[in-house]
Design a binder for these strands. Structure first.
Lengths: 345, 345
DNA sequence: TTGTACGCGTTATCAA
DNA sequence: TTGATAACGCGTACAA
């Protein structure tokens, strides 16, 4: 019972290359992965044979034989949220010239989905794992602890990393944004929050800390919803907040989408910004500096987070174990017209 | 020379399941892939053994043995552009309950990158391929023709599909948007375009056709740039257009980002919208209907395009060959305040 | 309906 | 530095 046709469809294999180059298959394999361990002359012959045949290694066979896939597993809570879209772009860009592929999945802000996907990913023995946030479920945490590969938690930092972390403090972001509004002269500053995932909660905590420190906190100033964030929602939340507390003189928005909704509603209702209402957003989307009036926001470095998460993982794969497993990329407060309240008011 | 340790790290394999269930390995394999071809009793035993061991099939071994990976290759020109982010989300959502994984890559609007990535993808023998647009390079086109799997071209439709297509006519979109402005009473309607990829070019062609049909076309009305689109750029292009042609009374923007930039600039410069300048965008982002004034736009069904692209590919994988290989999902003109010019002007 | 033998393309191991 | 051999875990082909 001899093999009839090659099942693979006739693509050149490593054996073909080896034959053409007049060497053993394993030498071809080595020449491709660890060129320095193969003599110069053979390396050249092999290189030529590879090009002549247009040989491409089969990633599946490679993964099977080495029990390790050249894959980065990436878990994010949303694909359309611009913040995560940019993180993902950073990851892809950093990996495009490496042999590693990206395996991306959307957890839809669900810990259980994250767990399920993690299990799925792990079945491929990824080279590294990048997960969002620090609030994994217990089961997910266990999976990560035993992943057997570098793990990077992104977007946030906290005291107890699985392995490595890169991000910034959302609590501090909320505190700084709120303090800025207080310093700018606003007193009845509301908090507008959508979806209220863990990072939103921490921004809210930062807001509350700042307000309490100034003796200005009032629970009626806080308006939140579990609904997904959108510009439309920003408008609605703002209306609710205003109805609840007509003396509101500013809002710190959980993110820029909401802030934009507030801005548009102010235009529509002829509410003067920043005179009557001050607005601060979060993330600093491109458009915030072009808006009229331009909108104060907290600039976060999400593309860079994606890039450096990859850098850290790559280093760990290479055997380096950095002293500093937690990287705080911080954020920048961008002061703009929407909180530039005239002093003489 | 007996096998010492399992290289794989001790995960249960199909053989372990077979042993525990007291059947042959191939029966386990079948029970998992074609349950109807295995007797009820064995199926139950196997199912139990699978759960007891926590067995998960190794996708790499599976791909190697079957010469076909359970992977959808997806090529998009941008990850952060909201339009493609939603397409991608639709694809992921539709595939999340299937055995198929997604292999996503970013072509950065480059035909050459697309070619390179296509080659990379093909080396994995994907189950299907989803590519953006219809303007592949010749080499890419050849690769697609010989892909040996269903291919879906998305976002656009055209006369000569590789295999299947789903999208809409960008030319018609441009034409309808422009006609609407003409009918609303605008005469010196400018075109603002960024990046000018093939789809943007076709929208421009649609704009031109509409303007020429009305005897209103003037090349000086067209302002474009190869630069990536952004809200900031919308403002800048608008300023340029106005400087070039102060009598401008409307703009059709290649996309909503630009339209928003125009809107903000009008606020800043105290230009009345829609009285002095009318604005129409493209894609109809959520925020367009909340903006003040709300902005007329062409609503495109990108999430649905992602979903249905998967549906079509899945059907083809299942052996169905639909009569209709080209699916036009169309678009909707959303008339809003930004083009509601008072009749008595 | 179920099982046996073998091959998929590559890498790990060990010897030369 | 190079090579022979044996896995890696699964599916295909064919026989029972």
């Amino acid at each position: 019972m001899k093999p009839r046709t090659r099942r693979g469809g006739g693509r050149p294999t490593i054996a073909d290359v080896a034959r053409l180059a007049g060497v053993g298959a394993i030498t071809v394999s080595r020449a491709l992965r660890e060129p320095e361990r193969v003599s110069e002359s053979l390396r050249k012959q092999i290189q030529q044979a590879v090009e002549e045949l247009g040989y491409l290694p089969d990633p599946n066979a490679r993964a099977l034989a080495s029990a390790r896939a050249e894959v980065f597993g990436v878990l994010v809570p949303s694909l359309t949220n611009n913040v995560f879209a940019e993180v993902v772009r950073g990851i892809y860009d950093s990996l495009s010239d490496s042999p590693f592929r990206v395996q991306l999945a959307n957890t839809h802000y669900s810990g259980l989905e994250e767990e399920r996907l993690l299990q799925l990913f792990l079945s491929q023995r990824p080279a590294a794992l990048i997960v969002s946030g620090i609030d994994q479920t217990e089961a997910a945490r266990r999976l990560l602890d035993n992943a057997g590969c570098p793990v990077v938690q992104i977007m946030e930092i906290g005291p107890d990393p699985v392995d490595m972390m890169i991000g910034f403090s959302h609590f501090e972001g909320g505190r700084v944004a709120t303090n800025h509004m207080i310093e700018a002269g606003y007193r009845r500053v509301g908090f507008l929050g959508a979806r209220m995932d863990p990072r939103s909660q921490r921004r809210l905590a930062g807001y509350r800390a700042a307000m309490e420190a100034a003796g200005l906190f009032d629970p009626r100033l806080v308006t939140t919803t579990p609904v997904l964030s959108s510009v439309t929602l920003g408008r609605d939340l703002f209306r609710d907040a205003l109805a609840k507390m007509p003396s509101l003189d500013g809002v710190f928005c959980n993110n820029d989408d909401l802030a934009l909704g507030v801005l548009f509603e102010c235009h529509r209702a002829s509410i003067a910004v920043p005179q009557t209402i001050g607005i601060t957003g979060f993330n600093d989307l491109d458009m915030m500096q072009v808006a009229f009036p331009s909108v104060t926001s907290i600039r976060t470095h999400r593309y860079e987070i994606g890039r450096q998460a990859v850098t850290m993982a790559l280093a760990a794969i290479g055997g380096e174990r950095p002293e500093n497993r937690i990287k705080d990329l911080g954020f920048d407060l961008k002061r703009r017209e929407s909180t530039a309240r005239p002093a003489d008011r």
